[in-house]
């Protein structure tokens, strides 16, 4: 099913604009992630798609060719996984998963068959008759997913489906969730504030900030070609190299970088994974802190950027310079991202 959103907006009763007019299309079977910091309007947009929130006048939501804007949530046939999972505490796993079929008056034996099938796909068969409070976090998440997909919804909506889990579990369940969503072959929109989660699960990501959709694209597009400074910072923490540009040379307190002519009038951004320690590098700075994080060292280097800003870099290898020592750095100009300054965008 294709989801089409046209000029969807939401203004709350107190006048706050939760969502500015937004257009978006999600293709059949596509998994789209709404990514942004808390309060950016992503959950509001998800709830508008579900029918849990009434959008401002002029908004349009279409499922294929059908306009569902005025349709009550219970008639939209959407599946939703809630942040808290919202499993019914008064029902067993099986009753939870079968609830959507039961209220739609699906005959008992067909219902049983469908529930069994979904339980099997979500590896819940062994827990079918347990009460939901006797499940682990990961199992609860699978029940929430199974319950949402059992009535074969037109679209699956997921609101921060991993945030209720602890960090260790989150990483392993992320890939599992991605695999399960693909196996259902269902159009899905899922909300997250975690960029690595969005990249791992989604086909496309829509980055949102302050109620506005800033950029929609495949994860690698957003990473390599961010449309603006917010996306650059939010996806992969790009750092601005704020210095004086003169005749194609960027003057920084720690040295000089030669930039191509196209960079004129723009700010160059660099990510920590693209900065290397190099005796022959053109930039010099003092190591402020060194932290070891398993695969690499993370160094904060002062004196390169103006105004005391620190430049972070990742240093692979078994040893790292001590804090306080002076190091030289190199940056490959092809790794730089040039973006026009946008005073209107928050950082």
């Amino acid at each position: 099913m294709t989801l089409t959103i046209e000029t969807a907006a939401k203004t709350f009763a107190d006048g706050t604009r939760a969502l500015c007019p937004t257009d978006l299309t999600v293709g059949p079977g596509e998994i789209l992630s709404l990514l942004g910091p808390s309060g950016c309007g992503k959950t509001t947009l998800l709830r508008i798609i579900a029918g849990l929130e009434r959008p401002d006048a002029g908004s349009r939501i279409r499922f294929d060719e059908t306009d569902v804007t005025g349709l009550a949530v219970e008639h939209r046939n959407v599946g939703m996984v809630f942040q808290s999972y919202a499993l019914f505490p008064n029902m067993s796993v099986r009753a939870n998963v079968g609830y959507g079929l039961k209220v739609r008056k699906v005959p008992a034996d067909e219902r049983r068959q469908r529930v069994d099938e979904v339980l099997r796909l979500c590896r819940l068969t062994d827990y079918a008759d347990r009460p939901t409070h006797a499940l682990s976090g990961g199992q609860r998440q699978r029940v929430a997913l199974a319950r949402a997909v059992a009535p074969r919804p037109k679209i699956l909506l997921l609101d921060e489906p991993l945030s209720a889990l602890d960090a260790a579990l989150r990483d392993s369940l992320r890939d599992e969730l991605a695999a399960m969503l693909r196996q259902f072959r269902i159009t899905a929109v899922f909300v997250t504030h975690d960029q690595s989660e969005a990249m791992a699960i989604a086909d496309r990501i829509a980055v949102m900030s302050s109620g506005t959709m800033l950029q929609v694209g495949r994860p690698e597009e957003l990473y390599h070609a961010p449309a603006n400074t917010f996306v650059a910072r939010f996806i992969g923490n790009a750092m601005p190299l704020a210095g004086q540009m003169e005749n194609g040379v960027l003057h920084l307190p720690g040295g000089r970088l030669e930039l191509p002519a196209s960079a004129a009038g723009k700010t160059a951004y660099i990510r920590s994974e693209n900065i290397r320690l190099d005796q022959a590098g053109s930039l010099e700075g003092k190591v402020e802190t060194v932290t070891f994080s398993g695969g690499h060292f993370r160094l904060a280097v002062g004196g390169v950027l103006p105004d005391g800003s620190l430049l972070y870099l990742q240093h692979p290898g078994r040893t790292a310079p001590e804090s306080g020592s002076t190091v030289r750095l190199t940056i490959d100009p092809s790794d730089l991202i040039y973006l026009a300054d946008q005073t209107s965008t928050h950082s």
Partner: peptide, 8 residues
């Protein structure tokens, strides 16, 4: 709300 999304 979850019951509503399930059609109740």
């Amino acid at each position: 709300e979850s019951a509503a999304t399930l059609g109740a």
